[in-house]
Design a protein around this nucleic acid. Structure first.
Lengths: 226, 226
DNA sequence: GGACTATTGTCGGCTGCTTGACAATGCGCA
DNA sequence: TGCGCATTGTCAAGCAGCCGACAATAGTCC
């Protein structure tokens, strides 16, 4: 896989893992329920895996799921999502492989919509289909806007913004500097220098494969406009 | 408007103005024709203006239309599109203002689909609606992939690639160097220098607001991988 | 035709980033 | 405990592209 692909998939995964991507209302789900099946997943089991054909989309009803990319050592958690989140829909609509893997963190209940069943049903409920797809368009559009905002910033600002976006609930980012560099399309050395600057300003602490945000507001200032 | 917006909208316009963005077949158009009206536009007249509510999408049937952003002095031509191109559809679906203005260059015939009429009709032809929207998703995705590919190339390579993509059937690109620079997120000077290099290698000729490709294969080589 | 504006072509200085190379440190594993 | 690999930290050299400024030319409008 090329570097550009790496970056691309990372970006997509970051975007579509966000919990604020909620195109479906409870009413919509009720209408579509005949095409879906409720599934209980034990902690650690997979909803789908990166690279598989996207034959279904999932809506989280209860619990927390984790999106990640890569396997074993190269595994990178991309996002954790909770109730209401929709997973795998874009890949399913486009009939391409999943761009990331999804795994149950705790006991999770999901509604599974098989592509073969869902598409005919959406044809019967075109209003829902339109809303769903338009939500997807908006998401993609937002991602592009974000990419473009990053493009014309310095590496320092890019790093600051990425840290703000990707920090977990403990304010930590678990990525090596090399991985960070790949995400941003920069060199490892530049990222290292940028982190040094952020550290010198007291915004973050750095460790082995860990960056801890110590001053969120300061970091936001260093990220520049946005 | 910020520079990032400029770029973003330029990219979108480029993508959605491309003539290979053809989600609609003649059959589709026939099925939708009752929601559309054929309109003749004289040279220089507007299909729609940036910032207006996107109450309609257009499909070019004949002639050439020009997409641009800004007004008067700050006006920037973003793309020229011909037969088959779909304009304004994304903004219409998202029910947001148009992101650019569209103007007839020569005598243009367009099919105009008013949002208020089109959406109900798409509800009756959900298959067309799904295809249209999924095409939009794919286009946006392709644009992202392309952006990422461009990010790690030199300005010279970027210019070469853009020329190859945007040349009309005469092998000409009608954009000012400043407009080109905005599209690529580069400075006018760098674009100028890049064009000089391409010219010195005999791949293109340059004129006032015109770049003519004289050696397509050579230009492809200069564009590098892709 | 003449005035005005838009566009192209070029220069020098400067900065941020990359490349390559190397030392120092952290972590996993036998 | 010690070995090996992954990661971090740092330096020097080089360059691609940006900025500001300016002259020369092409189109446009009256």
């Amino acid at each position: 896989m090329t570097t550009a692909d790496q970056q691309h998939l990372a970006w997509l995964a970051r975007t579509f893992g966000r919990t604020d991507y909620l195109p479906l209302s409870p009413d919509d789900l009720a209408a579509l329920s005949q095409a879906g099946e409720l599934i209980e997943k034990y902690p650690g089991t997979h909803l789908f895996r990166e690279g598989q054909p996207a034959d279904a989309a999932y809506v989280v009803q209860r619990g927390t799921a984790e999106l990640y990319r890569g396997v074993d050592r190269a595994k990178r958690v991309v996002a954790r999502v909770g109730e209401g989140a929709v997973l795998g829909d874009i890949a399913m609509f486009r009939d391409e492989p999943y761009i990331s893997s999804a795994r149950a963190v705790d006991a999770v209940t999901v509604m599974r919509f098989a592509r073969a069943k869902l598409l005919p049903l959406l044809v019967e409920h075109p209003v829902i289909a339109l809303r769903w797809l338009v939500a997807g368009l908006s998401q993609l559009e937002a991602t592009q806007r974000r990419m473009l905002r990053l493009m014309q910033r310095t590496v320092r600002e890019q790093v600051a913004e990425l840290l703000l976006d990707d920090a977990d609930r403990f304010g930590e980012v678990h990525l090596s500097q090399a991985a960070l560099a790949t995400l941003l399309g920069a060199s490892r050395q530049s990222v290292n220098e940028a982190l040094g600057a952020l550290r010198a300003r007291g915004a973050v602490e750095t460790g082995y494969r860990v960056i801890r945000i110590t001053d969120r507001d300061g970091l936001r200032r260093l990220a520049g406009g946005g």
